[in-house]
Amino acid sequence: MTTQDLFDNDPLPPRQRLGPGSLLLRGFALPYQTRLLAALNAVIDAAPFRHMVTPGGYGMSVAMSNCGELGWVTDLRGYRYSPVNPASEHPWPAMPEVFFQLATSAAAEAGYADFMPDACLINRYEPGSKMGLHQDKDELDFTQPIVSVSLGLPAVFLFGGLRRNDKTERIPLTHGDVVVWGGADRLRYHGILPLKSGRHPLLDTARINLTFRKAG
């Protein structure tokens, strides 16, 4: 099956159980999109996107920003959360209320009613950019889930197992889709295949991913 086949097999189910602790909620963010995009623009004005560098010295193809009490950063010193933006040495913008509402509502739908995110990593993908397989493991409390919101161009989400070489499932994501994973699935490897070219009526040639976490 090709990447295009994943998007051509309509209709897609509105909810899809990806594992014992994982749920895909298709279109869940659509009712929030007007407020969500306005709030996103305000955050990016305060903390512009930039391409961070990995500890190995490689520039990431995905541009990043953050909002909330903590922001995820990477540089030659390693991966970590920081209360300030290294580019400005100012605190990250506060998490907009609509971000918090969306993240906690999606988490509750997936069975995580007590989720209280304090960090939102904002990734901007352009055609060709990708995210390699990785675990979200820089947080202090693995009992809290991850909530991932897709906006803009469609992408293929790779969802693997607890080991890097476990088989991955290819899951098509479109504008407004939300994936929540936690519990037994919390440390599953995941990533994004290289983004295909296209145009979205609201975000043009970009895909924006909001990843909510309880980091501290």
Rank of each mutant, 00 (worst) to 15 (best):
M64W: 00
R170S: 15
L140G: 10
H134P: 10
N209K: 07
P91Q: 00
M131C: 13
L76G: 12
A47H: 09
P11Y: 05
A103T: 01
A38F: 06
V147F: 02
A155M: 08
D138H: 05
H51E: 12
G68V: 10
Q144T: 14
L30R: 14
L24P: 03
V147L: 09
R164S: 11
H90V: 04
L153V: 09
L151E: 05
A184N: 12
D10I: 11
S197L: 12
G59L: 14
V149Y: 06
D166R: 01
F7W: 06
T34N: 13
A29P: 02
R207Q: 05
W181D: 09
P194N: 05
E97N: 10
E109Y: 01
D75Y: 11
V149R: 03
E69Y: 03
L24A: 01
E126K: 14
S88G: 10
A107T: 08
A29L: 02
M131P: 06
H200N: 13
P91S: 07
L187N: 11
D10T: 13
Y125H: 11
P20T: 10
R80I: 03
D177V: 10
D45Y: 12
L37P: 03
V156M: 04
L30W: 03
L158F: 04
S88P: 02
G21Q: 00
A46W: 01
V178F: 02
K167G: 13
G160C: 09
T205W: 05
C67A: 08
R163I: 04
R188Y: 04
L37D: 06
D5Q: 15
V156N: 03
P172A: 10
G71P: 04
S65V: 11
L25I: 03
K137W: 12
L158E: 13
F28V: 01
G132I: 01
Q4L: 15
A46I: 09
M52F: 13
